[in-house]
Structure formats: structure tokens, C-alpha cells
């Protein structure tokens, strides 16, 4: 079965969503991520959705769920790169994803993760 790859970068996990996801793939990602956070004792998850052309209520719910589940597993989640048109649509749809942290791109997302973990100086892989 098709899967979205999850990259491990030191204490963080990086997911880049690049396909037009059907719902089962989204559920699969949710399972895989929680599994991986627990397995790697990850402290943070970065989800890059910059190539995603739409986020509907299903994908929005998935993002919110991942963030909530990760928090229970003591990991922070940052969603990065949402496109303007996608953000405008999502707001109109009525979703504000208030429990999900966001950043402009992978770089600022990483900075935010370090900031949230309170250790600016630690290098990746530490």
C-alpha cells in the first residue's frame, strides 16, 4: 500500500505531503506518525504542506488529530508552508486549527520546534 514517507532528523520527524491524498492515506499517516514518535522518542513533528493544493475538513481534522496525539506523546507539531489560497479557504470552511502550531516554511518551522523544546543550542542528531 502507498504510504507517505516519514523522515527522521535527530529528535524530530519530518513529513512532506506531496500527493493529493485520499482519505485512507491520511488515516495511514496518522497511524504511522504516532507509531514513529513513540519508536524514536521524537520531541517534535514537522509537517510540510507547501505543495498541498487543498486542505478540506478531513485533512484539517487529520492535522489537528496528529498534533493532539503527538502532544500526548510529548512531541510538538508544527505545520508549515500552507498556501494563501488554502488558508483563505480553510477559514471560510470554518476551520481555524487553533490547536496546531504553524510556520512559514521548513526553516522557520525548525526554529520554532527548537524554541518550543527550549534548547536553541542543541544540534540535530543530539
Amino acid at each position: 500500500m502507498e504510504r507517505i514517507p516519514i523522515l527522521r532528523m535527530g529528535q524530530f520527524l519530518l513529513v512532506t505531503i506531496q500527493v493529493d491524498m485520499h482519505d485512507r492515506l491520511a488515516v495511514q499517516l496518522q497511524d504511522d506518525l504516532t507509531e514513529k514518535i513513540s519508536e524514536c522518542s521524537s520531541r517534535g513533528v514537522l509537517i510540510d504542506i507547501s505543495t498541498l493544493e487543498i486542505v478540506d475538513s478531513f485533512i484539517g481534522r487529520m492535522l489537528a488529530n496528529i498534533a493532539a496525539m503527538a502532544r500526548v506523546l510529548d512531541a510538538e507539531t508544527v505545520v508549515v508552508g500552507m498556501q494563501p489560497a488554502v488558508a483563505i479557504t480553510l477559514v471560510e470552511l470554518g476551520m481555524s486549527l487553533s490547536g496546531v502550531r504553524t510556520a512559514l516554511n521548513v526553516e522557520t518551522g525548525m526554529e520554532l520546534l527548537y524554541e518550543l523544546r527550549g534548547d536553541f543550542n542543541s544540534e540535530m542528531g543530539g
Binding site: 493544493e53 487543498i54 478540506d56 494563501p84 489560497a85 479557504t89 480553510l90 471560510e92 470552511l93
Partner: peptide, 17 residues
Amino acid sequence: TLVDQTKLVTAASELAR
């Protein structure tokens, strides 16, 4: 426009589901 496209596609996704 891109925003209109996105709104329509998102609505279609909701309704199809």
C-alpha cells in the same frame, strides 16, 4: 482565480465525501 479554484475544489471534496 486560484482562490476561487481552491474554494470550489474544497467544496467538491466535502460534498463528494
